[in-house]
């Protein structure tokens, strides 16, 4: 059946022969029905791999160092979360761990798990539930907001001490763009069609 219902108003549309790129919008409410992508598979993979590299750098290096005379403190994403756990602020620590570390990582690994087999034209188990999970966790990946949080902290602490942005700030800054390019290269409609063929 070559029809699709708008996700926001439920109006049924006939799916036209797919153009190579561009978005199809609902005629009634204007929401995007689907977005066709050129080279979706290659572009998604390339951006995702670049994203993973930046992610590793961003997570493992300190993003800020604070100098006040002879004393100096450094903090990174993981050490910061560790410290929150140590201080017993468990709900907040968990929230940061999920939204800034685990979910972005799962998102990128999920994309690799789906798109590498698509590229190689092979079938893997659990591709369907993985892609479903990928869609569900999407709103909870918040690295870009964390990046803005780092900037605000730099301004706030700049009056107390000398703040030296670390390597991770650059990595996070790039990651925001790279991750959003990876996500926008995903042609969901195409992925579901391909995953649907197997079953």
């Amino acid at each position: 059946m070559h029809q699709i219902a708008c996700h926001e108003c439920d109006l049924i549309h006939d799916i036209p022969p797919m153009p190579s790129r561009g978005a199809a919008c609902c005629v009634r409410c204007g929401s995007v029905l689907f977005r066709a992508q050129e080279n979706s598979i290659d572009r998604t993979l390339a951006w995702t791999i670049a994203g993973l590299v930046l992610y590793v750098v961003g997570v493992s290096f300190p993003f800020l160092a604070m100098k006040n005379g002879p004393i100096s403190n450094e903090t990174g994403l993981l050490t910061g979360i560790q410290l929150l756990f140590d201080q017993g602020i468990i709900p907040l620590a968990t929230l940061v761990l999920l939204t800034c570390v685990l979910i972005p990582l799962l998102q990128m690994l999920g994309l690799l798990y789906i798109f590498i087999p698509l590229k190689l034209n092979i079938r893997v188990k659990y591709a369907v539930p993985v892609f479903r999970l990928f869609k569900h966790i999407k709103p909870w990946s918040m690295m870009e907001i964390y990046m803005l949080g780092i900037l605000v902290s730099i301004v706030k602490l700049g009056k107390m001490a000398t703040i030296v942005p670390g390597l991770a700030v650059i990595a996070f800054g790039l990651l925001i763009f790279v991750l959003s390019f990876a996500l926008s290269a995903v042609d969901e409609h195409m992925v579901w069609e391909k995953l649907g063929e197997d079953s």
């Binding site: 800020l64 907040l92 940061v96 907001i145 964390y146 949080g149």
Partner: peptide
């Protein structure tokens, strides 16, 4: 979520060795 992240960053950064200390 922004302010939550700012608080956690401040707490993590301003810990030992400073005259000031920030808690959530």
């Amino acid at each position: 979520m922004l302010d939550i992240y700012v608080v956690t960053i401040l707490v993590a950064l301003v810990k030992l060795g400073f005259l000031a200390d920030i808690e959530a």
